[in-house]
Structure formats: C-alpha cells, structure tokens
C-alpha cells in the first residue's frame, strides 16, 4: 500500500532522529491525533535529547510547526555559494517536511470551514453565497494540491543524493510536459519557450526538474497576475545549461531578494507573504542543489527572473 503519502510519513516507525523530527512535525500538522502520536513517539525514545523533549511539548501546542522549527534550527548559516553538501540537504529536507505539514492546515481549514458553512446553511444561503463558498473550496483545494505535489519531490531528492534517478533527458520533452501541465491547469496562462536549435541532452531527474519549473511558473503566475506571458529560456553552455524563468510582473521586493531560498525565513512570522511562496522555492533550491547546480533570483526592468543551472555531465 503506497497510497496516501501522509499515512506512510506518519508512521511512527522511523529509525533515525531526523525522520522522527519530521514525523513529529507531521503529527503537529495532523491536529486531531497530535497528542497521542507525539507522546507515543516520545515514550518510544525517552528523551535522549532535551531538544527532542521540548519538541514533544511543542507538538501538542497549537503553533507547533513554527515553534518546532525555531527550536530545532539555530541561526542559519550564510548560504554558501558552492553547491550545498549532503548534510545541508538533509537539513533542508527536514525543515521542508515541517513547513509543508504546517502549511497544509491553512487550505485544509478553509475547505472544512467553507464546506461546513455550506452544509449548515443549505436552506438559508442564497445562490450567490453558495457559489462563493464552493469557489473558495475549489481554490483552497488547488492550493492544497500544489503543496501535496511537492511531497514526492522530497523523497526523490533523497534518492538523488545516492545517485539514483538521474537519466539523460531531452530537455524539450521535460519542458513540453511542464508547459502542457500548466496550460491544462491554467488555460489562460501563456508561456513562451525558447530552446537551442540543437537537441539538448542533460542528466537529471526529470520529475524533479518539472516540479522546479512548475513551482517557478506558479510563482510567476501569482506575482505577475497572469496578464503577460512568462518566458522560459534555455541556453546551452560549456559545462552547464542555463534555464531562465522570466515574468513581467511587479518584481521581487528588495528586502526579500536575499532570503528567497533561505529556509530560516519560514520561522519568521513577519514574512507575511509566505503563505503561498514558502515551500515552492525551497524545494527548487533543494532539487537544484541535489543536481549540483545553482539557482538565483533577480529583478529585471520589467519584472523578476529566476535562473538555474544544471551540469551537463553526471556525477
């Protein structure tokens, strides 16, 4: 049974501590079963680590996710310019887990709330109000789907570190499928793609790179209002190929530019727009790092652009 990733992740039978932390993060997000599961986990591994015990308490609290991430992760190191090492990937992955399961609650509570309102008010609500509730439910479930689709990526990143999953892919096939998916989801969203004339082959995990592109495109759609088409430009180079996702929107506020790919910002409650921009970019960073590439963001005169590179030779 490999149905429902949530369940398998929730399974308390994880051996190493990192995964235990992750499971706790999930327990916190799961709400109803939080207390029980967390205490079961803690009984199983009596507090070898004060941090761990503290986390147990946090998990039963309400702001568990946020609190937990503060407790575990101390001050972030400055992002190194070279590709990150495995230890950092592990860290990123663990904080991703926590953030994701914390963030699942927001759209989920929207769906529950709005559907309950509908059910309870089925006789008193007028058609417009009903339509509005269902529209909210639909929007929240799309959002939820976006988050959930990032989950398999985390497992695949782990495999990548062990050298699995990279195959030589034809870049246009990966782009073609990505664009097709985006256009199915957002029929009015226009994407321009420019690739080199020659067939470009790159070693990669295609599904992970698709997820990176989807996250960047969803981001572009959100921040450019979807009025102007978004460009994807691929350039071939000697050792690396470069991918640019360029939008023509409002650009990225200067104060955010330096922290977009920094997982520590998620513990910062003043990061107000984090609601919908949180995990996507962190997944991008983790995926590209696992491929030994780099990812950066910058503004151009008419909007924002994200640039990532992928090495042309496999490790």
């Amino acid at each position: 049974m490999h149905n429902k990733p949530l369940h398998s992740l929730q399974h308390p039978d994880h051996s190493n501590q990192h995964r235990l932390f992750a499971a706790l993060g999930i327990a916190a997000a799961a709400g109803a079963v939080t207390g029980a599961l967390a205490s079961r986990l803690i009984n199983r591994k009596p507090s070898q680590n004060p941090l761990f015990a503290a986390l147990g308490t946090a998990a039963s609290g309400s702001a568990a996710g946020v609190l937990a991430s503060r407790l575990i992760y101390q001050k972030p190191k400055k992002a190194a310019p070279k590709p990150i090492e495995e230890e950092d990937l592990e860290k990123i992955r663990d904080s991703l887990m926590r953030i994701i399961f914390h963030d699942l609650r927001t759209p989920l509570s929207g769906i529950m709330g709005n559907s309950l309102l509908y059910l309870e008010g089925s006789k008193t609500l007028d058609d417009t109000e009903k339509l509005q509730l269902v529209t909210h439910i639909h929007k929240d479930s799309s959002w939820l789907l976006n988050i959930v689709e990032n989950l398999p990526a985390i497992a695949r990143i782990r495999d990548m570190e062990h050298g699995f999953c990279t195959r030589v892919e034809i870049v246009e096939e990966v782009l073609g499928e990505t664009v097709h998916k985006m256009e199915t989801r957002h029929p009015d969203f226009k994407i321009h793609v420019a690739i080199p004339e020659e067939i470009l082959l790159l070693p990669m995990d295609a599904l992970l790179i698709e997820q990176v592109l989807i996250n960047l495109l969803e981001n572009a759609l959100l921040h450019s209002g979807g009025c102007e088409p978004v460009d994807i430009i691929v350039e071939d180079g000697e050792d690396f190929a470069t991918f640019i996702v360029r939008d023509y929107g409002q650009g990225i506020p200067e104060n955010m530019l330096g922290h977009l790919f920094d997982s520590s910002r998620l513990a910062d409650e003043t990061w107000d727009s984090r609601k919908k921009t949180g995990i996507g970019l962190l997944i991008c960073k983790a995926v590209i790092s696992a491929h030994r590439g780099t990812i950066t963001a910058r503004n151009h005169s008419l909007g924002a652009e994200f640039i990532f590179t992928l090495p042309k030779k496999a490790r």
Binding site: G176, H180, V193
Partner: peptide, 12 residues
Amino acid sequence: NPACPQYLFTEV
C-alpha cells in the same frame, strides 16, 4: 516549437 508540441506529447 519542439518544446511546446501540438502533436507529439511526452509523458516523461
């Protein structure tokens, strides 16, 4: 445009 196919779709 081979990267935005209209006829031949890839399921990677």
